[in-house]
Amino acid sequence: MHTTDINAPSLTLGIETSCDETGIALYHSEKGLLAHSLYSQVKLHAEYGGVVPELASRDHVRKILPLVRETLDKAQTQPSDITGIAYTRGPGLMGALLSGAAVARSLAFAWQLPAVGVHHMEGHLLAPMLEDTQPEFPFICLLVSGGHSMIIRVDGIGRYRLLGDTLDDAAGEAFDKTAKMLGLGYPGGPEVSKRALQGVSDRYKFPRPMVDRPGLDMSFSGLKTYTLNTWLKAKDENDATEQTQADICRAFEMAVADTLRIKCKRALEQEGLNRLVVSGGVSANREIREQLTALMDKRRGEVFFPRLEFCTDNGAMIAYAGSKRLAAGQSDDLNFACQPRWDLESLTPIDDSVV
């Protein structure tokens, strides 16, 4: 295993390719984030209404090295300045993960550097650490993305305890499926939120799933079905107008945000904490941010969000998380393996002196 002096300055190259965005970043242990670049495949997949794994993998292969060169140029640095490489090992699409991992391992071998695979959700969870004001441990993290909706107690890097999980559709997945049912564009989540801005908030009252029972698990499949039935009824009544569509989007968005607020409040009370971190792609949603900010203001607690550009997949969060694990002496062998499914609680804790 490669070992490093945790007190020596380091420069980590981060490579994120878990799904349909190629993210590259350079993170310096003392100077912070030096540069980052992101290429989105939204236009590539738009005509299919969703991500096509084979196309995603091929596009990552085409884009990774040009983006690495672009990021190095932005930071005005050279490969010889890099001290380690971090890449997304999982979870995600296997082909996409392998694309990034193979390039990362090849660069590490060519440049004689240590490389470490990073858990994609740990990257999201730690994304607020890239900001000037960082949350202190311990805290509750609401991690909401296209594939995950989790409530986690975080006592340090690698010290995670899953308190609540989604039983079916994640919040982001429910947003995307709702958009498809309503005939909106791709990607669906932002389209629902955009339409919701024109919606009347009190026309429809959608259910808040699983808030009437104990526990912190979540389920958004039933809410998705309720939304579809409301839209089909509007069609039957010849009321499938743009305004009705906007009103339904508003009711759906408010129901998701309110459900997440109730679950977060319950988690904070259960764990005796008053510090909340919200991350993942869905954390960019305006209604969710407003409701959770209001919750923590009322509790006189603290809430932390990553900046909007770091809510969705990005190389900066991988570079940051990887830099901490490299500083702790962790690195991968040449015989690397990706993990499309990976338990967050199985990660190795990092000594507090590295953080």
Results as ranks from 00 to 15, higher is better:
Arg195Asp: 06
Leu334Glu: 13
Asp169Arg: 06
Thr259Leu: 11
Thr12Glu: 10
Pro187Met: 02
Ala35Val: 03
Lys194Phe: 00
Arg250Ser: 14
Asp352His: 11
Asp73Asn: 15
Cys311Asp: 04
Val354Met: 05
Lys31Tyr: 02
Ile6Leu: 08
Asp59Trp: 07
Gly280Val: 00
Gly301Cys: 14
Gly301His: 12
Asp258Glu: 15
Glu136Lys: 10
Lys194Gln: 15
Leu347Cys: 09
Gly188Tyr: 01
Leu268Val: 07
Val154Ala: 09
Gly32Ala: 06
Ser346His: 06
Val61Trp: 05
Trp231Cys: 02
Ser57Ile: 00
Glu302Gly: 10
Asp155Lys: 05
Leu184Ala: 03
Glu47Gln: 14
Ala234Asp: 10
Thr241Gly: 13
Val282Arg: 10
Gln134Asp: 05
Ser193Lys: 00
Gln78Asn: 14
Pro190Val: 03
Ala257Cys: 12
Lys43Ile: 07
Asp20Ile: 02
Asp352Pro: 15
Arg289Leu: 04
Val42Pro: 13
Ser57Asp: 11
Arg208Met: 14
Ala319Gln: 04
Asp20Arg: 13
His120Trp: 04
Val51Cys: 09
Ser201Phe: 03
Phe310Thr: 00
Lys324Ser: 08
Ala240Glu: 15
Thr244His: 15
Thr77Arg: 01
Ile64Phe: 02
Gly164Asp: 11
Glu136Gly: 14
Pro66Leu: 04
Leu268Pro: 09
Asn7Arg: 04
Ala102Gln: 11
Thr348Ala: 12
Gln78Arg: 15
Gln112Glu: 13
Asn274Tyr: 10
Met181Arg: 02
Ala337Ser: 13
Gly100Tyr: 02
Gly222Glu: 07
Gly188Pro: 07
Asn274Cys: 15
Ser57Val: 00
Glu309Leu: 06
Gly90Arg: 07
Gly23Ala: 00
Pro306Lys: 00
Arg307Trp: 05
Arg208Thr: 08
Cys249His: 07
Gly23Lys: 03
Ala240Arg: 08
Lys180Ala: 13
Val144Trp: 04
Gln134Lys: 15
Pro53Phe: 02
Trp231Thr: 10
Tyr160Asn: 13
Gly23Met: 04
Asn229Ile: 00
Ala321Arg: 04
Glu16Asn: 07
Glu309Trp: 01
Lys177Gln: 09
Ala102Thr: 13
Tyr186Lys: 08
Ala171Tyr: 03
Ala108Tyr: 01
His60Pro: 09
Gln198Thr: 07
Gly281Pro: 11
Val118Arg: 10
Val118Glu: 06
Arg307Thr: 10
Pro340Glu: 04
Glu54Pro: 04
His148Glu: 06
Trp111Val: 02
Gly329Arg: 04
Gly185Gln: 08
Met210Arg: 13
Ala179His: 03
Tyr186Leu: 12
Lys63Asn: 10
Pro190Met: 01
Gly315Trp: 00
Leu125His: 02
Ser37Asn: 09
Asn238Gln: 15
Met150Glu: 15
Thr293Pro: 12
Ala127Glu: 04
Pro135Lys: 01
Gly84Cys: 01
Leu55Ala: 07
Tyr204His: 14
His120Glu: 10
Thr71Ile: 01
Gly32Ile: 00
Arg275Val: 11
Cys19Ile: 04
Phe252Pro: 13
Gly272Ser: 09
Gly158Ile: 01
Lys235Asn: 11
Gly199His: 10
Thr88Leu: 08
Lys224Tyr: 03
Pro214Asn: 14
Ala328Ile: 03
Glu242Met: 05
Asp258Met: 08
Ala251Trp: 06
Val42Met: 12
Glu16Gln: 06
Asp343Asn: 15
Asp236Lys: 11
